[in-house]
């Protein structure tokens, strides 16, 4: 059963199409990867799904979803003394509990942080976290509302190798445990190969879609990224 159906989605910037008539659907519990070069419109599709940009076409949900979102970029003043606990308390679902949060709320926050092995950061300032640690906190924040679907926009830079190597198995595990559907944007072909059930290749318009095995062929990759992009399947990720 499709949880999300996108039909003929187009997004324009100054009359120039950023995304051009893209259609796809996502099944409940599925992991879908959006693949494509920089500027292909992947993050823009997320923005359209989240209602952050105006678009043409149809985005249909099977029921009103709770969406968790991990953005690609998160620019903030790192000198501001905001703790991880406070950052979690900013969540819109919590209404008025910022100043005097109840024990239940704090325990829920710790539970969400525990899912991503980040409980130890509870009282740390977010400006002091490494990019990998902060990304875990962002994931904890996104799963805090028990989402039906999680949109994960992979950062293009700054994430340490250790963070990158462990985040995808963790996301996959969480999607099973908390039974949410996962749409991820990734630039790493190996990660897409290992973790996605379905892949959509984009370069402003739809280039290909299907299972990673069917789609990630040298021919398709050449079409998507241009000549000379190599892809070697390796199996050293720990699941």
């Amino acid at each position: 059963m499709s949880i999300l159906e996108v039909k003929d989605l187009s997004v324009f910037y100054d009359k120039t199409p950023i995304v051009n008539k893209v259609s796809f659907s996502v099944e409940k519990g599925e992991t879908l990867a959006l693949l494509g070069p920089n500027g292909a419109g992947k993050s823009t599709i997320f923005k359209a799904i989240l209602g952050l940009v105006s678009y043409k076409g149809k985005i249909t949900w099977s029921k009103k979803p709770i969406i968790g979102f991990v953005p690609q970029r998160f620019d903030f003043d790192k000198t501001v003394p905001m703790t991880v606990k406070e950052f979690m308390l900013l969540h819109s679902q919590l209404k008025m509990s910022f100043w005097l949060p109840s024990k239940e709320v704090l325990s829920d926050i710790k539970k969400a942080l525990a899912y991503v092995n980040a409980t130890k950061h509870f009282n740390r300032k977010i400006g002091e976290l490494s990019s990998g640690e902060f990304q875990r906190v962002l994931i904890a924040r996104a799963i805090f509302s028990n989402p039906d679907i999680l949109l994960f926009d992979e950062p293009t830079a700054d994430i340490d190798v250790e963070g990158e190597m462990t985040i995808y198995p963790l996301l996959k595990k969480l999607s099973k445990e908390l039974s949410f559907t996962l749409i991820l944007i990734s630039h790493d072909l190996n990660i897409v190969y290992d973790f996605a059930d379905k892949v959509i290749c984009l370069n402003k318009k739809m280039m290909c879609s299907g299972s990673p095995k069917a789609v990630l062929t040298p021919d398709q990759l050449n079409k998507l990224y241009g000549e000379g992009v190599g892809f070697y399947v390796h199996h050293d990720h720990k699941h």
Binding site: G51, F74, L90, M96
Partner: peptide, 20 residues
């Protein structure tokens, strides 16, 4: 509006995605 102001200040995108 303290919590909402803080939320919007830190990330407009995230705040908007959470319905603010």
């Amino acid at each position: 509006f303290f919590r909402n102001f803080a939320h919007v200040t830190f990330s407009k995108e995230l705040a908007q995605s959470e319905g603010l």
